[in-house]
Computed example of a mutant assay.
Amino acid sequence: MNETIIFMGTPDFSVPVLKALHERHPVSMVISQPDKPVGRKRTLTPPPVAAAAKALDIPLYQPERIKEEEAVERIREVNPDLMITAAYGQILPKALLDIPRLGAVNVHASLLPRHRGGAPIHRSVLEGDTQTGVSIMYMEEGLDSGDVISQSATPISDDDNTGTLHDRLSEIGADLLLDTLPSILDETNDRTPQDAGEVTVSPNISKADELLDWNRDARDVFNHIRGLSPWPGAYTIFNDKRLKIYGANKPADRSDKNPGAITAVTDSGFTVACGDGYTIEVTEVQLSGKKKTNAHHFTAGRQDLIGAHLGQVD
Rank of each mutant, 00 (worst) to 15 (best):
E171N: 09
D186R: 14
D144A: 12
D159P: 02
I91Q: 03
L177V: 13
S170R: 02
A104D: 00
E141Y: 03
P100S: 09
L176M: 07
T130V: 14
P120T: 03
L176V: 08
Q131E: 15
A174M: 10
T164I: 07
Q151I: 05
G173F: 12
R191G: 06
L111Q: 05
E187F: 05
H122F: 07
R101N: 12
L143A: 07
V107H: 10
D190F: 12
G89M: 10
S183W: 09
I172N: 06
S170C: 05
T188Q: 13
S152Y: 01
A109I: 09
S135M: 10
L92R: 00
D147Y: 02
L97Y: 02
Q90R: 13
S157D: 07
L176T: 08
E171P: 00
D179S: 15
Q131V: 02
L97N: 08
T132I: 05
I149E: 06
G173W: 13
D98W: 02
Q90F: 00
Q151F: 06
D186P: 02
L169A: 07
D159C: 04
S150F: 00
A109Y: 13
L112S: 04
S145T: 12
R114I: 06
R101C: 05
V125T: 09
A104F: 00
Y88F: 15
I136S: 08
N189Q: 11
L143T: 14
A95D: 15
E187M: 05
A95G: 14
P100C: 11
L112P: 05
N189F: 12
D129S: 11
H115L: 12
G128K: 10
S150E: 14
L96R: 07
N161G: 07
D160P: 07
L143S: 11
T188I: 11
R123E: 01
R191S: 15
N106C: 01
H122M: 01
G117T: 13
H122P: 00
D158W: 13
A174T: 12
D158M: 10
I121K: 00
S152N: 03
P155Y: 06
D98G: 02
E141D: 12
L126K: 08
E127D: 15
Q151E: 09
E127S: 12
R101L: 14
L176Q: 04
L181R: 09
S170Q: 02
G128E: 11
S135Y: 05
P100W: 02
T130H: 15
T164M: 10
L111F: 07
P182M: 08
G118K: 14
E140W: 00
V125Q: 02
I121Q: 01
D158A: 09
P93L: 06
D179T: 14
A119I: 01
